[in-house]
Design a protein around this nucleic acid. Structure first.
Lengths: 236, 236
DNA sequence: GACATGAGACTTGTATACAACATTGCCCCA
DNA sequence: TGGGGCAATGTTGTATACAAGTCTCATGTC
């Protein structure tokens, strides 16, 4: 019956989206463990709101797949397994090339500029061993690719996939990714952006696919995923 | 200020999922027109519930992209345009081959049997000029493909994409699809299922891609989409 | 006449209260 | 001693009531 340590309450802007983002963040960071029960009243008290907005937040998280709930049955943090994580990568592997191709046809100079800025920031964060920032920038790149595609369906789908991939990869182990793998991927991302600048959808898509291939091929990355689930399976 | 004709209230099982399905259905069928305001109180009265479950239903529909709402700003049926519809097809064009490939590796004999049953049902419904049933079976095939893939992410994403594609294609015009196009696509679906039976992911994916190509190439189908938005743009 | 402005009505957002249902543990009985 | 039923407890689901914000339209001023 022990509930998790009530870390001090967050921003507490009283709108639902803030609750969703905060709770999703805690799930992704593992502060809410897979399988853990999330009682509405307890969470509501934790965030200083009533059950109504908290219910809406939990429903939203359920539709994103981060929690599961059954009628009168309670809400629980969803569980991930290694297979689901790889399935997630498979989905990413088809969405990202599509986004790259569409972005190559539609992106603006501002988009390209932002891509290059993010790439530089990412390089710096990785070189300076700031894994949190490295992950953040990686997420921003992914989000920006979706935005540049101009495909609203893709934007929504890629956002959820991105959150789940962050969930599936524990932050502590990102540092273990071999430097050569990371550099190869960074180079491929630059190739992708160059192809987008040349308005070459095919080349952009190929580069995007190569990024995923490099991720798959990376023994380091695989270890990141596997280790994540060893940790998770310890606390069911 | 005229609200839509209150068609007689639906099943009225008082759970939220039923509300979501019913309202989504009405949006898809055009009974709730794009841009139309959906007042919580009015809808709640229409379905004989209070605003709380209705709010949850509307939030869920917002996360699926069928309605849009801003804080204190009201909820409106989302609008579709032809570009968004084609973007939707592009997404489908990458998801479906992936699902086919994974299903080829994972599907059970029961899955295959269901596929073949649905194919027969679809043929019969089309021959007998029952467009409603034709669409229903088509949806079931699509859903079943996702299920057979065993990829939970794919199942969730394909479900939303499927609903939106139904939304983007008006039912009245399905009959206008040329018979040869329909038959070609039915044959390709059979090829896909055969490839799945042979546990041949590459061939299954190729067949799935060919299905989308046939859809794209179909002048009749294109007319279905375009006509849908001519109709929609009449009532903004 | 055009525009700023404020009161009013209206809609959404949230808290509280209560109803419906699941679960647990006890007691009774075989 | 084991199993079935029942009450006690607790959590979720929903209705009602009220608070907070937005929009409209009339009014007054320049």
């Amino acid at each position: 019956m022990t509930q998790p340590t009530p870390t001090q309450s967050s921003p507490a802007r009283s709108n639902v989206q803030a609750l969703v983002d905060t709770i999703r963040g805690r799930i992704i960071r593992g502060q809410f463990a897979p399988g853990q029960r999330l009682k509405e009243e307890w969470l509501a008290a934790e965030f200083g709101v009533s059950r109504i907005p908290m219910r809406e937040a939990l429903r939203a998280l359920a539709s994103e797949g981060f929690v599961r709930s059954e009628r009168y049955g309670g809400t629980f943090v969803a569980t991930l397994d290694a297979e689901a994580a790889h399935d997630l990568l498979d989905v990413r592997a088809v969405l990202e090339p599509l986004a790259a191709a569409q972005a190559a046809m539609r992106c603006t100079p501002e988009h390209l500029e932002t891509f290059r800025r993010l790439l530089d920031e990412g390089d710096r964060a990785f070189r300076e061993r700031r894994p949190e920032d490295t992950r953040t920038v990686k997420g921003q790149l992914y989000e920006h690719l979706a935005l540049a595609s101009g495909n609203s369906t893709l934007i929504a789908l890629m956002r959820v996939v991105r959150f789940k991939i962050e969930w599936a990869t524990s932050i502590e182990l990102i540092e273990q990714i071999p430097e050569e793998t990371r550099n190869l991927r960074a180079k491929l991302v630059r190739d992708m952006v160059d192809a987008m600048a040349d308005r070459d959808p095919a080349r952009a898509a190929t580069a995007a696919a190569a990024i995923i291939d490099a991720t798959y091929a990376s023994q380091g990355w695989r270890r990141v995923v596997e280790a994540r689930f060893e940790a998770a399976s310890k606390s069911p």
